[in-house]
Design a protein around this nucleic acid. Structure first.
Length: 491
RNA sequence: GAGGGCGUAGCUCAGUGGUAGAGCAAACGACUUUUAAUCGUUUGGCCGAGGGUUCGAUCCCCUCCGCCCUCACCA
């Protein structure tokens, strides 16, 4: 490695000695590679004059002629150098180029006798010299760790494949934004640094503002701020942005992740279910060209309506435990243990049900791979959701699933300020009992609710997971350009 | 947090209780239509880090670091 870098540095100096700037300020380019390839047949011929730019990916030196491949952001193309056309001196300068260098090449288009569309180069310039070797040309970069730590190498070496994921990500977000814009939502931005964290059950990151000399929390959700805007009279708002949760890292969790939250006044969770299935289906059609997509080998039909399954029914079906028959924490815990599941004695009944949900999701695969809504969650794990109209102890809440991924969370928002206060107080009790993920009481938010919030439906969608679905990726780290990593030894 | 796997040249990978190999990349040479060009020659490694066992360790044992998988936890 040191040797190769040394060799490249020597060539860099040799280029400078020839009076050539290896990092010129100006660049000429008449076409992209994709444009040229698209019009190749009509544009080829010795009268053509094209200037292409790109990174050298391959050099095949034949002595007095050489083939190379250059790659720009739109594609790859072969270029051909010949000593007759360039002159001995200029041709020899090719020796100073390395794979990885950026060049511009001017010439005409022709087809080789093996049918390869090629630029016959009459003039070329170096645009930027690379000092380190690129990953191997055939196998590319396979090492998962390097791919994530040095995403630029992943994008170079694994080309289309790596890039497609992030193009899909971009298209997914813009399709979502378009859908919401077209449905009367306005996009807003709310604080990332919050004096209190709320809107989800998670441990926060804490930071400090020097001038104000106070701590702030990195937001774990935007919920309570968007609801304040509903109180303020906006009827449909959304925000797409980064949330931060100080929790574990795995295939579906990254400490910073992107979430879309939206709130719609005069709506309930049934309206939001319609919104979700319609929105995600429309995103799939835009991004994947169909409402039927393949995820990890399973075909998933996102066409509305998605099945609605009550959470407790799903639990009963896949775990054999009918939660309704065990109204107390103790009886439910005993039943779980009788069925061979762990039941943490410290947890409340709602959290036990949450655990059962996890067991159910694992056991329910592959049936739960399809798009569906699980509905009607227990009240004590849903402190911001409105009580279920019919069934005590439950809320008007649902979660959308597809591909076995929990894509989000939604409910009819609790707009009764006294009930909300009581729920917060209950959470504070759990916090005092050592549940460090319980939600904290937000007096300012309660004051807003007391001003009055209309009936509202709200939704959060995990963008990263949605992108996993759209890009058919099994790990959240594959859809985040620079995922959180442990520090390297030399860091 | 628990268990399992992995870490060897810039990249992709072999390999062995007697201190290392291939292909690509790199260097030198040949070649004026190649396609992962070909052919010849050459260079390249604290075998993740630190301890231990041993006459001797890249290999066996322990600790640590990093990555992956499964489980637990959280979204």
């Amino acid at each position: 490695m040191a040797d190769e870098r040394e060799a490249r540095l020597q060539r860099l100096h040799a280029i400078r000695e020839k009076g050539i700037n290896p990092y010129p300020n100006n660049v000429e380019r008449t076409h992209t590679i994709a444009e040229v390839l698209a019009h190749f047949n009509e544009w080829q011929g010795e009268n053509g004059d094209f200037i292409l730019t790109g990174r050298l990916r391959l050099i095949r030196d034949m002595g007095k002629a050489a083939f190379a491949q250059i790659e720009d952001g739109t594609g790859r193309m072969q270029v051909f150098f010949r000593i007759n056309d360039l002159g001995e001196e200029t041709y020899k300068t090719l020796k100073l180029l390395d794979i990885g260098d950026f060049i511009s090449a001017r010439g005409y288009l022709f087809t080789t006798r093996t049918g390869e569309r090629t630029l016959h180069v009459l003039e070329y310039h170096i645009l930027a010299k690379g000092l380190r070797p690129l990953p191997e040309k055939f196998h590319g970069l396979e090492d998962v760790e390097t791919r994530q730590r040095k995403r630029y190498l992943d994008l170079i070496a694994n080309g289309e494949e790596a890039r497609t994921i992030f193009v899909t990500r971009s298209r997914t977000i813009s399709a979502m934004r378009r859908y919401l814009d077209e449905h009367g939502f306005i996009e807003v931005e709310t604080p990332i640094l919050q004096p209190l964290y709320g809107g989800a059950t998670a441990r926060p990151f804490i930071t400090h503002h020097n001038t104000l000399d106070r701590d702030f929390y990195m937001r774990i959700a935007v919920e309570l701020y968007l609801k304040r805007l509903i109180v303020g009279g906006f009827e449909r708002v959304y925000e797409i942005g980064r949330n931060f949760r100080n929790e574990g890292i795995d295939r579906t969790h990254n400490p910073e992740f992107t979430m879309m939250e939206c709130y719609q006044a005069y709506a309930d969770y049934n309206d939001i279910m319609k919104l979700v299935e319609e929105m995600i289906c429309s995103i799939a059609v835009e991004v994947r060209g169909s409402s039927r997509i393949t995820f990890q080998g399973t075909e998933i039909d996102l066409t509305p309506p998605w099945p609605r399954i009550r959470l407790l029914d799903a639990i009963a079906e896949f775990t054999g435990i009918d939660v309704n028959r065990f109204p107390t924490r103790e009886s439910l815990a005993a039943e779980m243990r009788a069925n061979g599941y762990e039941a943490d004695p410290k947890l409340g009944r709602g959290r036990l049900i949450d655990d059962l949900k996890g067991i159910m999701l694992r056991k329910g695969i592959p049936a739960l791979r399809q798009a569906l809504f699980l509905t009607d969650y227990p009240i004590d794990i849903s402190p911001l959701a409105k009580r279920h109209t019919g069934i005590p102890g439950l809320t008007d809440r649902f979660q959308p699933f597809a591909g076995g991924l929990e894509l989000g969370n939604a409910f009819t928002e609790l707009n009764d300020p006294l009930d909300q206060r009581a729920r917060f107080e209950d959470q504070m009790r759990q916090l005092a009992q050592g549940d460090d993920e319980a939600q904290v009481l937000d007096e300012d938010f309660l004051e807003a609710l007391e001003i009055g919030m209309p009936p509202t439906g709200g939704l959060g969608i995990g963008i990263d997971r949605l992108v996993m679905l759209m890009a058919d990726q099994e790990s959240i780290r594959d859809v985040i350009l620079f995922p959180a990593m442990r520090k390297m030894a030399n860091e």
